[in-house]
Amino acid sequence: MTDGLLCGWRIRSDIALPELLDWQGDDRIPDLVVRLGEVDERLPEGREISPLLQIDGTGAGLLQVPMVGRFLVRPSGGITIAPQPEASEAEIRLFLLGSVLGMVCHQRALLPLHASSVAIDGGAVAFCGPSGMGKSTLALRFAQHGHSVVSDDICVIETCEPPRVRPCFPRLKLWRDTMEDAALSPEGLERNRRGQEKFHFRAPHAGVREPLPLRAIFLLRRAGSGEGEGIQRLAAPLDIMAALEAETFRLQVGHALGRAETLFQARALIANDVPVYRLTRRADAQPDRWLDAIAATIRG
């Protein structure tokens, strides 16, 4: 099996990762190595960070998903998975390329935002917001208009100047209703979880290989009663900092790994360099209605 490309890393894996682009870089030793093997139920001297996750003093993490398996994630990049016998490969990849990827980002002092992102005019535009607010839906609609999907759940930000997004993979997790609204059929697609009407859709355009400058962040929110729709730039530094903190993927994991300061500085760098907008929509807003306005906002 050929190695894959994930956020700039060379990844070698015992299980197939069809979402990823092939590694075409140098012949370095793989940055991440995924193996199937035994994983103990407890991490010796591990501290419980959340109900299903422990982290120990060396920065290793153990994620346990009852019907999927155990994932041991070492800071060296070694990842061991002990799957439950009934787990499907899609289910294993869901957590490997989700929670585990988030942990790897924190181990490596990157800033993972809970965001979908797409490429617009050679830069990445990120959409953040609570579940159900339409992050993946917006990314899908941009993809249908010819834009590459840079990331789905996790937008991995490298804090250089200007901040850059390391592309994940062009796969979107979409509910049946969202797909049908976009005139797509979920027929033949892998399910997010067995029996769930949520599917793994691979965007049609070639994924992105190289990091892209982060052009803008949109915080998606729902209009309250009597409130109008619109795009508004956040101006107050404290508002931007608090919003970026709230949108950090697995913030508690980052803190447990001693990244509070790095994450804070990363937020400050973004606050200085990247415009952050609040995009307020009504619950019944048509997804396509905002594409032009978003593009126009970015182009200023």
Binding site: I49, S50, P51, L52, L53, V65, P66, M67, L94, F95, G98, S99, P130, S131, G132, D153, N192, R193, R194, G195, Q196, K198, R250, Q252, V253
Partner: peptide, 22 residues
Amino acid sequence: RSLQDCHAGLEHSDLSRQEVAL
């Protein structure tokens, strides 16, 4: 969902019903 996701440290939309119950 947002309160539960926040304190569970992951998204319940990625869990099976039995896992949510556990």
